[in-house]
Computed example of a mutant assay.
Amino acid sequence: MKNERWAPHVTVAAVIERDGRFLMVEEQTADGLRINQPAGHLEAGETLLQAAIRETLEETAHTFAPQALVGVYMTHIDKPGSGTTYLRFTFCGTCSAEPAPRTLDAGIVRTLWLTPDELRACRERHRTPLVMRSLDDYLAGQRFALDLLHTHSVGPPVADAP
């Protein structure tokens, strides 16, 4: 038996409000067309903030400026024959007024600016329950300073002295 180490999938998401509306993406998934905050996986070598900025740009063409951490969420998605655990870091902040001229990530159908009521009315189309949970936390004023997060990088091994 192979000794494999379990690890959750680390993801980031961005809550971006403008004039009472929130920047969302409509994306094609294995479960059909779903609505989500700009979100995605942390990639090797990047910080959580870098991942949130990159994912927002790739999915919306807007430049994201994180201002606070809304929350850290863990969810387990059960699928027939398997399951996946996600550890999601959700940030809030501002974004560029206009999207950059670029192609959106594969699977992203379009961006939407929706009110909280519009989002509540389509819960069945949310990618995960974390979409509404993190928005509700944001609306309740939940914010944590970004200096709560620390990234420690370990460089290449240093050769032993002779």
Rank of each mutant, 00 (worst) to 15 (best):
N3I: 13
R5M: 10
A7D: 07
H9V: 15
V12N: 01
I16P: 02
I16V: 15
I16G: 02
E17H: 03
R18K: 15
R21F: 01
E26C: 07
Q28N: 05
D31H: 11
D31C: 04
D31S: 10
L33P: 01
A39R: 11
G45N: 13
E46F: 11
L48M: 11
F64R: 10
F64G: 08
A65Q: 12
P66F: 09
G71I: 01
G71W: 06
V72T: 11
D78A: 06
K79P: 01
P80A: 03
S82W: 04
S82H: 10
S82A: 13
G83C: 02
T84S: 12
T85P: 03
F89G: 06
A97S: 12
A100D: 06
P101Y: 02
G107L: 01
I108D: 00
R110H: 00
T111Q: 03
D117P: 04
E118L: 07
L119T: 05
T128D: 13
V131R: 05
R133S: 13
S134G: 04
D136H: 13
Y138N: 07
L139P: 07
L139R: 10
A140I: 11
A140Q: 14
G141R: 07
R143M: 06
L148S: 09
T151C: 12
P157E: 07
A159R: 15
A159Q: 13
A161M: 09
